[in-house]
Computed example of a mutant assay.
Amino acid sequence: MSDRRNPAELKRETEVDAVASLFLWVKGSAVGGLAFLVGLGLIHFLVRTRFVGEAAVAASSVGRWRVSAWIYYNAHLVPTEGITFERAAVVAESGNSLARLAAADSSLFVAFLLPPALLVVTGYAVAKRRPRNVHWLRAGLATFVGYFFVAVVFMLVASIQPEGAVQGVPTDSEFRPNPWYAIGLAAVAYPAVFALVGAMLGRRTAWNRPSRQGKRRP
């Protein structure tokens, strides 16, 4: 027997689907932003005890959270302007501190895989829980929006200059993630590629909202 529903019921189900789609955008954006913060926290945990000597003194002067933010952008291949950290020294030039730390300790090369892994997992999770009639691409785009927003905001926060002089660096130096690379790579390219890859992997496992028909009495 064909499934015949009256216009009121169809309208009600359409409204429910519209709310579910809106919730997907909100949830996906929130989870995408959270993925950036989780990655930042993991980087902070990985590098907080890696510095010794002059580098440790400079990291304390700059602020450990700020150094961790710069290094997380380094994991997106974004160079830091004005300063580069090595394990025991500070170099007054632009560069990738994570690459220099990883050159001394090869286990840190895994940190370069952290942003792609987080974005793939996040995109997959959001796509898997999307409503059945919502295209998987929306799940990837929702994740992208959240990651993009937090990456741009945190770039601005990480560009705030530390107070006082930093040992081993000229006093007129300005420290920050390179803004063009930060926007182009960390905020756009990485989430656009890896969040969509994750969403594509989760496209065949969409959440099927229970039908109201099963609840109706005969």
Rank of each mutant, 00 (worst) to 15 (best):
M1G: 06
D3I: 08
R4V: 15
A8L: 13
E9C: 00
L10F: 08
E13R: 11
T14L: 09
V16C: 03
A18I: 10
A18R: 08
V19E: 15
S21A: 14
L22V: 13
L24A: 07
W25N: 02
V26T: 14
K27C: 13
S29E: 09
V31Q: 06
L34P: 03
F36T: 05
L37A: 15
L40P: 04
G41Q: 01
G41V: 01
I43S: 00
R48F: 10
R48S: 14
T49Q: 13
V52Q: 10
G53E: 00
A58T: 09
S60W: 07
R64C: 09
W65L: 14
T80C: 08
E81M: 11
T84D: 03
F85T: 10
E86G: 12
R87C: 04
A89W: 03
V90Q: 02
S94Y: 06
N96R: 05
S97A: 13
L101P: 02
D105Y: 03
S106R: 14
L108M: 05
F109K: 02
V110K: 00
A111K: 00
A117G: 14
L118K: 04
L118R: 03
V121E: 05
A127T: 08
R129W: 10
R132Y: 11
W136T: 11
W136S: 11
W136F: 15
A142K: 11
T143H: 12
Y147W: 15
F149C: 09
A151Q: 12
V152Y: 12
V152M: 09
V152S: 12
M155N: 10
A158N: 10
I160V: 13
P162Y: 03
E163T: 10
G164L: 05
A165D: 15
V166M: 04
Q167I: 13
Q167A: 14
P170W: 04
P170C: 04
P170I: 02
P170R: 03
D172N: 12
F175H: 01
R176N: 04
R176C: 02
P177A: 03
P177D: 06
N178V: 06
N178R: 03
G184Y: 06
L185I: 13
V188P: 00
V188S: 01
P191S: 06
A199G: 04
G202Y: 06
G202I: 03
R204P: 00
R204T: 08
T205D: 13
A206S: 11
W207C: 00
R209N: 01
P210M: 01
P210V: 03
S211V: 00
R212T: 10
R216V: 08
R217A: 15
R217S: 15
